[in-house]
Amino acid sequence: MTEQAQNDSGFLSPCAAGVVLAVSAALVLNGVLTVVKESSAPVKTALVGLGGHHWTGHALVLFPLTALLAVVLARLRVGAVQNLTPGRASWLLAGATLAGSVLIGGFYLLH
């Protein structure tokens, strides 16, 4: 199936689907990495070693990982990528944004 044919059927292109899925995963991963580094001194130290500051190290892990994940997902020939509709993508992104933000805010609120 060509990319144009997929677009005619209402699915996102593999490239856009890969980016949407990667960003959704990264939004949750951002929350998980925040909780893990604040709970584990070795992880926080490793991030400091990577970027000079834990926040810089956090960003240096998150952004390249998102880009790599987007490239890998865009090339995968699986249903989750090939059959992603704009409607599903919207819900996925909204859910991931909420999950990541609640994870971060909730963690700092409780600690």
């Binding site: 951002n30 956090h58 960003a59």
Partner: peptide, 26 residues
């Protein structure tokens, strides 16, 4: 919370041109 949620905001902002280009294509 702000310093870490901002990383997510940046990711979503980077997604904006991709989403608009896809909206144009579809």
């Amino acid at each position: 919370t702000k310093e870490h949620v901002f990383l997510g905001a940046m990711l979503l902002a980077l997604l904006v041109p991709v989403a608009v280009a896809e909206a144009r294509q579809l």
